[in-house]
Amino acid sequence: MKVIYNTLFKRTSTYAVAIIASAFFFERAVDVSSNLIFETVNKGKLWKDIKGKYE
């Protein structure tokens, strides 16, 4: 915690950079996981699941 505070949070410049950089990873994580949840809930109803029946 001490190291993180002194390297990232102490200066506004590094703090802002840390926020923006982690926003990228956060976005990716949220998108992937919400997509995964949607596909698990709707398993069997999606086009990629029933595609085989029509080809």
Binding site: M1, Y5, N6, F9, S22
Partner: peptide, 13 residues
Amino acid sequence: AEERKAFSYLMVG
């Protein structure tokens, strides 16, 4: 103090 501040800033961040 740094540890506590780090926690506060982490929440805001």
